[in-house]
């Protein structure tokens, strides 16, 4: 099974990249590959390179990778309840992280942990509480405090607000934006929500069946999506800013089984614009306009796919 295939991405220091796709598109697998957290077997990274600050993560030893994880690259998970340790106070969990990756010890590490909690808006009197004593939004803020404790240069967030209510989601998003500018962290955001991407990302990659099908800065992608799948994603979701009374458009069919990908373009069996060539061979990524990449033989014309 090819979960992720021929994927090329660049993320600049201090910038945010949104990674968008449906369940099973391979978004999380890609993130875990960057962190080298794919379990082998059954998983195996069969090729490619992951350059991080000039070094190829794929060629590092286990010890070197451990050094990077949590320190230079860290991750925020979707469900803060299952990613926190239920038996440790939130302060101890941050202290543990700091102890593993820095020279700070004892009182100094504890002070740093309280600073991090203050940064995410958790009062010091709550620092001795356990995860179950916090609400979902506060737990996610603890997760962010842990992830940022060592000022990583890359932060990967996998659906960080999906489990949260909308007003709490807004708080967490504001917090991530603020911290990103303070710490100058690069940010990889995995989500299915194009609205969140519009708010906090600089660039966006659309993923389908383990491939990136479109990749650009958000201005170009939102004003004229080129790939029919991207267009479909925009149209399938009810939005607060569209006219009432319309019907949601549904992309026909199902995403392909990653064990049995169709010949040609992986999206061709569901594509309203597919022509014979599409069922024959995949197009591969090409630069349609400067900085706007698309994996499609017949991208949408300008104006054809515009989003207001």
């Amino acid at each position: 099974m090819h979960a992720v295939n021929h994927l090329n991405l660049t993320l600049h220091r201090g910038k945010a990249l949104g990674f968008v796709g449906e369940t099973g598109a391979g978004k999380t697998t890609t993130a875990l590959a960057i962190l080298q957290l794919i379990q082998t077997p059954p998983g195996k990274i069969t090729g490619g390179s992951i350059m991080f600050e000039g070094h190829d993560i794929m060629k590092m030893t286990e010890a070197e990778k451990r050094q990077i994880r949590g320190d230079r690259i860290s991750m925020i998970f979707q469900d803060p309840m299952t990613s926190l340790n239920p038996l440790k106070t939130v302060e101890d969990q941050i202290v543990e992280m700091i102890g593993l990756h820095s020279a700070m010890k004892g009182e100094e590490a504890r002070k740093r942990a309280l600073e991090m909690l203050a940064l995410v808006g958790i009062r010091p009197e709550r620092s001795k509480d356990y995860p179950h004593q916090f609400s979902g939004g506060m737990r996610q803020r603890v997760g962010i405090a842990i992830a940022l404790a060592c000022e990583p240069s890359l932060l990967i967030a996998d659906e960080p607000t999906t489990a949260l209510d909308v007003t709490i989601q807004a708080q967490v998003m504001e917090l991530i934006k603020k911290l990103q500018s303070v710490v100058n962290t690069s940010f990889l955001l995995i989500t299915h929500d194009l609205g969140i991407v519009a708010e906090i990302c600089d660039d966006v990659a659309i993923m389908y069946a383990g491939r990136i099908v479109e990749y650009s800065n958000i201005r170009q992608l939102y004003s004229h999506p080129l790939h029919p799948y991207t267009r479909g994603l925009f149209d399938a979701v009810p939005r607060l800013d569209t006219r009432l009374g319309g019907k949601l458009s549904v992309i026909p069919g199902l995403p392909p089984d990653p064990i049995d990908l169709p010949k040609g373009c992986a999206f061709s069996p569901r594509c309203p614009k597919a022509r014979p060539l599409c069922h024959e061979r995949e197009c591969g990524m090409r630069e349609y306009e400067p900085g706007h990449f698309v994996n499609c033989h017949f991208p949408l014309e300008l104006g054809e796919g515009g989003v207001q």
């Binding site: 007003t167 807004a170 504001e174 609205g195 519009a198 989003v307 207001q308």
Partner: peptide
């Protein structure tokens, strides 16, 4: 506040967000 918190998939200028 609830309405202003909803992220919208558009680059159009947005109303001011009211953070609770």
């Amino acid at each position: 506040a609830l309405l202003s918190a909803v992220p919208i998939a558009s680059l159009a200028p947005k109303k001011e967000r009211i953070l609770l």
